Amino acid sequence: MKDESERKKKIPMRELEKLTNMTRATINFYIKEGLLPVPQKSAKNMAYYDEEFIEKLKVIEKMRNADFTLNQIKRLVNYDTNTINGFGLQILESVNKLLPFGVDQNLVSISQIKEIGFSDENINELIDLRIIISTDKSNTMFPAYSMTVCRFVKYFIDLGVPLTVARDIVTKLKELADIEKNAFINYIRSPMLDSNLSQEEQKQEVEKCVENINGLLPILHLQLIKLPNEVFREY
């Protein structure tokens, strides 16, 4: 039994390619980038892979299809495999898709916000409650993040959560973002200005940091919001 178990764990590259539908070049690239551990070698040109490689490659493929960066995937696949379950991946993919309008300097129109499913009355209420704040006096153009905020609010409204409660959640998220931004500027960005890094290297380090934080925040949120069993009652 022991020999049979060990044989199952030792998978040659040619078999790994068949089991995962990935090429040798792709698998070696993921290993080189640190997304996968270095395989066991029985000879100079012969490496074997275990079943964990197959599971991780499946997860990597799903995240690549969901437009995650290599940096995000590297951080996520190195956590416990239970963390990256189907539901968690679906949430993370949704988070990525909420950001189609780029940086805050880009603006979105009131008609784009209406396409989410808001009426004129809803939009006016969002403005009155200062959930979204226009960039002009006529309330026709808004910062890009307003689209994400409105999708977030619409989700709660559809579930029957009052708009004022959704506003309180958004307000706290904005406060958290301000704290995070100040910490980033003071402790991460500022020291780089005194370093010997070029502007391009500084930019790459900043992007790497932001990607890592963005990859971890949804997982942290899922873990913190997990409801205790006593919340669910039997009827």
Rank of each mutant, 00 (worst) to 15 (best):
S134M: 03
R167L: 04
D178K: 13
D67K: 14
D158T: 01
M141Y: 14
E115T: 11
S195M: 06
R151C: 12
P191S: 06
N182T: 14
R189S: 11
E175L: 13
G86K: 07
F142Y: 09
L129Y: 06
D104T: 09
S109T: 15
G117T: 00
V95F: 04
T140Y: 04
D120M: 06
I179W: 04
D104C: 01
I91M: 09
S146H: 04
F152A: 02
I179M: 10
F101V: 03
I179L: 13
N182C: 12
M141K: 14
L159S: 08
V149W: 04
S134P: 12
T148H: 06
L163H: 01
G117H: 01
I157H: 05
D178H: 11
L159N: 08
A66E: 15
R167G: 05
D104Q: 10
K154F: 09
K174W: 07
K137V: 12
R151N: 11
N96K: 10
L163P: 00
V153A: 08
V153K: 03
P162D: 06
K97Y: 02
Y187S: 14
D168Y: 07
N65P: 02
G160S: 04
C150D: 03
I179E: 14
N82L: 13
P162F: 09
I188H: 01
V103L: 08
L76S: 00
A177E: 11
N139R: 01
R64N: 07
F184I: 00
I188R: 00
N85Y: 06
I132V: 07
S134A: 13
P100S: 05
S119C: 00
S195D: 02
K97R: 11
F118E: 05
G88S: 15
L129K: 08
A177D: 11
L98C: 15
T69Q: 06
V95A: 03
A183G: 11
T83D: 09
N96P: 02
N71V: 10
D128C: 06
N71D: 13
S94T: 12
S109Q: 11
L107P: 03
D120V: 04
K172H: 09
K114Y: 05
I110G: 01
T81H: 14
L89C: 09
L99R: 15
L70M: 15
I131E: 00
N78P: 05
L76G: 01
S190E: 15
F68I: 07
K74I: 02
R151Y: 07
G88Y: 08
D128T: 13
G88E: 13
P191L: 01
S195I: 02
N82H: 13
L176P: 02
T140P: 05
I113T: 01
D67E: 15
N106Q: 09
T164H: 08
Y155A: 09
L159K: 09
